[in-house]
Amino acid sequence: MVEPTPSTATAAQPGPAPHRGEPIYTVRGLTCRFRQPRVSLRRPTPPLTAIEGIDLDVHAGQRFGVVGESGSGKSTLLRCLAALQAPTSGSIRFRGQELAGRRDRELKFLRREVQLVFQDPMASLDPRMRVRDLIAEPLVAQRMGGVDERVGELLDAVGLARQSATRYPHQFSGGQRQRIAIARALAVRPTVLLADEPVSALDVSVRAQILNLLAELVERYDLTLVFVSHDLAVVRHVCDAVAVMRAGAVVESGSAERVSSAPQHPYTRALVAAVPTLRRALAGADPAALLGAAPTDEEPT
């Protein structure tokens, strides 16, 4: 269940990141509940609240990070932004148009502008399709022409050989599969890229390659990025603004720099402390040091 938002949180206010006109996404009071399977004959199981009362704005050109642990509702939030999950209540406006309550076929405009990269490319790429068809799928679905040429361009853009087009996803390494997923997401020239933990299934060396690629593409194509991760350090590297989620609510938001260097909410502080880093290890931190600030610790440090 959702805890009352502490006074230190700045959830409803947009972060100090630069504003560029009207926000692309305006989210107000977004709530999403899931029905649970019935376990008792007498009464239904209460629904699971994934997110409750989320307010946020994403501006054009912003790199917006969402940080939280499993069960925080960060993936549900992303799916709501992609209109793949209908919210229970609340409003999501994309360039002024309301997404909540629309049916799939009324969302064509969104599919052209917003694309998604998933955490596990092995699961998000149909194993029975060749790379060419995977990358071309958004183009074919939206009846756009010049498919083969575009697939070639995209493979170049993500640093894969053009011959890769005839192969199946299982023939690639994890990092290469994520490149395929990114190429596919960029196929329709979207303006917004939603990324759901795109590097957490990867080795550190591959993670660096994919983060560099994402940064390069975001710059080259002037994309707005919403980047979901459990790792505040990764979000700090990638994003300029960040919202920290816990148990379905945003507990702290602000510039990525400020939130990770001077976290205000105790949960954010615990999150920052818990990430092991080489620097701290070399400074003599042992596992106990990672538990520095317990999530319930309300005292400012």
Partner: peptide
Amino acid sequence: LDVTVQAQMLKLID
């Protein structure tokens, strides 16, 4: 595991 859970687990192993 999540980072905060990881921190607890590392401590327990230690």
